[in-house]
């Protein structure tokens, strides 16, 4: 397992688009703090709104990068190098999950560091609702877990370049549920708004504290478990070329 993780980290080091993303997020964080500082006297900053809005956009981008990271192993057929030298399929699958989760968390941490923490020293944060941020942060963490599970599942099932873009496409397409939910009063749409991790994070953009954090976290954990079990049950028996 440790060799597989080292292998994936080596691949990640070479993944130019991901490295650029991390640097860009850091830069955007600093720029955002700078711009908000300039306007500090004009209005009270919706700290939570800015923070969680950006997290949501970053997660969509990383879904694309993470999906491509996994699917590239199939496109280049380098996955057979791992299997043919004796790595268990379960170990390969777990290593992929850990790596993808790491990708999401690294981006979220970079944004958190350069916006939230640097901003904490530079901006007036006296009106930040700490409970909103902490609860939202916990929901966000588990939503990211669910995101990573779905990303690995989709890119494992569709073992080509389409599989790389499917996670981002799925999360983007399901955003419309939130739009429909504004227009139609439906129990199903209400349920999906609570259930899907991308819509959970969208609901954090309101600067109000999440009123169903436990439910959202449980749903995220269930999504992760289901995507792990589903993904592995397919992967363990898949014929590879």
């Amino acid at each position: 397992m440790i060799n597989l993780l080292r292998y994936n980290m080596m691949r990640l080091k070479k993944y130019g688009a991901f490295k650029i993303s991390v640097i860009t997020v850091a830069a955007v964080g600093l720029i955002t703090v700078f711009l908000e500082k300039r306007q500090e006297d004009c209005y009270t900053h919706p700290y939570a709104h800015t923070y969680f809005s950006m997290v949501f956009m970053l997660i969509l981008i990383i879904s694309f990068l993470a999906g491509n990271f996994i699917s590239k192993d199939y496109v280049d057929n380098t996955i057979r190098n791992k299997i043919s030298i004796g790595h268990k399929r379960l170990d390969i699958f777990i290593a992929n999950h850990i790596t993808v989760f790491f990708m999401y968390i690294l981006i979220a941490l970079t944004w958190t560091t350069f916006y939230l923490l640097v901003g904490g020293f530079v901006l007036d944060t006296s009106e930040i609702n700490k409970e909103t941020m902490l609860v939202g942060g916990a929901v966000m963490f588990f939503a990211i877990l669910a995101f990573s599970g779905v990303a690995v599942l989709l890119s494992t099932i569709v073992k080509n370049t389409l599989g790389g873009t499917l996670p981002a496409g799925f999360f983007y397409a399901t955003l419309f549920i939130d739009v429909f939910n504004e227009l139609i009063d439906s129990k199903l749409l209400n349920f999906l708004t609570d259930f899907l991790p991308n819509l959970q994070i969208v609901s954090l953009n309101t600067d109000k504290c999440d009123d169903k954090p436990v439910l959202h976290i449980v749903f995220s954990i269930l999504i992760f478990i289901a995507s792990f079990i589903g993904g592995y049950s397919i992967f363990r028996k898949t014929d590879l070329n």
Binding site: R11, D76, N77, T78, R80, N81, S84, I85, G86, N241
Partner: peptide, 16 residues
């Protein structure tokens, strides 16, 4: 464990 003792080329090269 047995597969750790073999080296394999299957059809086309699998390279990064």
């Amino acid at each position: 464990d047995a597969r750790k003792r073999i080296g394999t080329i299957v059809e086309t090269p699998s390279l990064h």
